[in-house]
Amino acid sequence: MTDTPPAARRRARLGLGNDWAMGWLLCAPAILALLVLRVVPALIALVDSFRQASFFNPDEKIWVWFDNYVFLFTQSPTFLQSMKVTVTFVIVTVAVQTVAALLLALLFVQRGWAMSFWRTLVFIPITIPVAVSAVVWGTAMRGDGILNAALERLGIAAQPFLASPDQALWSVVLTASWIGVGYWMVFLIAGLKDIPEDVKEAAAMDGAGALRTFFSITLPLLRRPLAFVVVANTVANFLQFVPAAILTQGGPNYTTRFLMYEIYTQAYLQGDVSLANAQIVLVLIVMLAIVALQFRLLRSNT
């Protein structure tokens, strides 16, 4: 019997002699970062949500238990409005981005001239920092911006995109959709390419047209990537902050006061850390529910 190699003996002394130990060792930095940057702050926010504290005087903390939550749902002048605005924004933006990403994915999986170039062109916005994209769109939507200049060329009056309570939210939806469509398109392109060609060929031999093939073959086999896009997109848009902060500062008339901007305002502008932490806990609950839904959808049989 041969002697154990020195390298193997060193791994054994370090507890690295099996895949389980090696796996935990490799995952340790990510787990540590998750604990320090995610779990611990969430637990601190949970504890502080049951206390009364001020950002400007953090040493004075009084236990008030559920009073912060009761205040948010019964007396807060902005929380329920922020929830309504956020839910509306999420529903509309997720629908627009998912449909647009799916249509672009269906187009770009086809063989055609310079398809790689067009895919790259659509994907470019996601490579630009969100703050930069928001500034560019904010400039374009000004009264003397390029969008109004184009509308005037068409004989249409200039529009108060970001200054109108009726248009501000939809202007932010447009900005967020322009940023996100290319990102979600990539996942759907990957899903479309995983669909076996022989299935489509069998449908064509049976006389199925393009629409019948799409609804009976493509869409069911794309359900898992599509479910991931919808759920992950919902989480991403629920946490939107930058477009509202840069383009509208939550206005006009609170029509773009997203929940994350409401939390920022409560904590850093008004100094009420307790209410901000209570809202963070509510956001975490919503996020956990959405993630649980995602796992349920992805576990289901296709």
Score class of each variant (00 low, 15 high):
residue 1 M to L: 12
residue 1 M to S: 14
residue 2 T to W: 06
residue 3 D to H: 06
residue 5 P to N: 03
residue 6 P to C: 02
residue 8 A to P: 02
residue 8 A to N: 02
residue 10 R to Y: 03
residue 10 R to K: 11
residue 11 R to N: 11
residue 13 R to P: 05
residue 18 N to E: 12
residue 21 A to I: 07
residue 21 A to N: 14
residue 24 W to F: 13
residue 24 W to H: 12
residue 26 L to W: 08
residue 29 P to V: 07
residue 30 A to W: 07
residue 30 A to M: 14
residue 32 L to E: 03
residue 34 L to N: 10
residue 35 L to K: 01
residue 41 P to S: 04
residue 42 A to R: 00
residue 43 L to C: 13
residue 45 A to V: 06
residue 46 L to P: 04
residue 52 Q to E: 14
residue 54 S to E: 08
residue 54 S to H: 01
residue 54 S to W: 03
residue 54 S to V: 08
residue 61 K to H: 03
residue 62 I to P: 00
residue 63 W to V: 14
residue 63 W to K: 06
residue 68 N to K: 10
residue 70 V to R: 13
residue 78 T to C: 00
residue 80 L to A: 10
residue 81 Q to F: 00
residue 88 T to Y: 02
residue 93 T to W: 05
residue 93 T to K: 09
residue 93 T to S: 15
residue 94 V to K: 07
residue 100 A to H: 01
residue 101 A to N: 08
residue 102 L to W: 02
residue 102 L to K: 04
residue 106 L to S: 09
residue 111 R to V: 12
residue 113 W to A: 13
residue 115 M to R: 14
residue 118 W to G: 05
residue 120 T to M: 12
residue 123 F to Y: 15
residue 124 I to G: 02
residue 125 P to Q: 09
residue 125 P to Y: 05
residue 125 P to A: 09
residue 128 I to M: 11
residue 129 P to C: 09
residue 130 V to M: 15
residue 130 V to D: 10
residue 132 V to C: 07
residue 132 V to F: 02
residue 133 S to E: 09
residue 135 V to T: 12
residue 136 V to S: 07
residue 139 T to C: 01
residue 141 M to H: 01
residue 144 D to L: 09
residue 148 N to E: 10
residue 150 A to E: 08
residue 151 L to V: 11
residue 152 E to W: 00
residue 154 L to A: 15
residue 156 I to K: 02
residue 159 Q to N: 05
residue 164 S to V: 10
residue 164 S to A: 08
residue 164 S to I: 11
residue 169 L to M: 14
residue 169 L to V: 08
residue 172 V to S: 04
residue 175 T to W: 00
residue 175 T to Q: 13
residue 177 S to L: 07
residue 180 G to H: 11
residue 185 M to R: 03
residue 187 F to R: 05
residue 188 L to Y: 05
residue 195 I to R: 04
residue 196 P to I: 10
residue 197 E to G: 14
residue 199 V to Q: 15
residue 199 V to R: 06
residue 199 V to A: 09
residue 202 A to E: 08
residue 203 A to P: 12
residue 203 A to K: 02
residue 205 M to S: 09
residue 206 D to H: 05
residue 206 D to G: 06
residue 213 T to A: 11
residue 213 T to I: 07
residue 214 F to R: 06
residue 217 I to S: 11
residue 218 T to E: 13
residue 220 P to F: 01
residue 223 R to T: 14
residue 225 P to R: 06
residue 226 L to S: 08
residue 229 V to T: 13
residue 233 N to Y: 04
residue 235 V to D: 06
residue 236 A to D: 12
residue 237 N to V: 13
residue 237 N to P: 00
residue 238 F to L: 15
residue 242 V to A: 14
residue 242 V to Y: 00
residue 244 A to H: 02
residue 244 A to T: 13
residue 246 I to N: 02
residue 247 L to I: 10
residue 247 L to E: 09
residue 247 L to Q: 13
residue 248 T to M: 03
residue 250 G to D: 10
residue 252 P to Y: 01
residue 255 T to N: 12
residue 257 R to V: 01
residue 258 F to C: 02
residue 259 L to A: 03
residue 266 Q to G: 01
residue 267 A to C: 06
residue 267 A to D: 09
residue 268 Y to C: 01
residue 275 L to D: 01
residue 277 N to P: 04
residue 280 I to T: 15
residue 280 I to Q: 07
residue 280 I to E: 04
residue 283 V to N: 04
residue 283 V to W: 00
residue 297 L to Y: 04
residue 299 R to T: 10
residue 299 R to M: 11
